[in-house]
Design a protein around this nucleic acid. Structure first.
Lengths: 119, 119
DNA sequence: ATATCATATGAACAAATGAACATATGAAAG
DNA sequence: CTTTCATATGTTCATTTGTTCATATGATAT
């Protein structure tokens, strides 16, 4: 038998103490679920492109659509998703709605992702 | 007519110069596509839980499964996804495979996400 | 009022995705 | 060799997701 392995009751390599430690450090499942939901929003190239466009400045729906070569409907749908998840905010001026990034977290999360890509 | 609006050829509120600027700042679509793919990986609570467990230490497949109350098959499938996308790395020791976070980007991306959640 | 413009919404459909099943490697022990 | 154990893979299936179409809202102008 190998020296490295450390069988316990039911675990192959973890001691009960370590199991307790790890479970203790883990955030509650509900929070991890919300976190996954957040990343799910970033996990679509259309939404990423919209967010990246908004990096530069606030923009109205039609211009985003034209800029990215998307239909107005598609953009509106995705902006709704982004707004619900607090990644963008809308400012209405007459019939035009200007959208902008909700906060700097959005930029930072995307930047971190970019760094990983460019490894 | 409102003073804020600035119609150009085809855009509602963007000047052609700004359009050029924005498009210039945008990474190529292929890169944004890859970025979305990366976030897609984080956008699943099972994978997030696995990654969080690996925050503490490297672990073998069976122990991860037991720790999180998942089937071995499910964990293996997700570890495969995580490995392909370079979020975890595997180290084989006999018949046991120990998985660990591939690099610190993973932790940082998740931490940034957590900060956003806790706003 | 009506017309037009910007955006939003709802329904329907195709594509992607995660989970569960069975099965297949591949390594150590007898 | 065969058996057992840890992990990996393939396939099917139900669900989710993004897009498109048609339509609705809401604001400005005539």
């Amino acid at each position: 038998m190998k020296e490295n392995t450390c069988p316990t009751d039911t675990y192959l390599c973890l001691t009960p103490e370590r199991v307790a430690d790890i479970l203790d450090e883990m955030p509650p499942d509900e929070q991890l679920y919300d976190l996954a939901e957040l990343f799910k929003i970033f996990g679509d190239s259309t939404r990423i492109r919209i967010l990246y466009a908004l990096f530069e400045a606030e923009m109205c729906v039609g211009d985003i659509a034209q800029l990215l070569g998307l239909s107005q409907t598609a953009v509106s749908h995705q902006l709704r998703v982004l707004k619900i998840n607090k990644l963008v905010k809308g400012r209405k001026e007459g019939k035009i709605v200007f959208y902008a990034l909700a906060d700097e977290h959005v930029r930072r999360i995307i930047d971190q992702g970019m760094e990983h890509i460019a490894e």
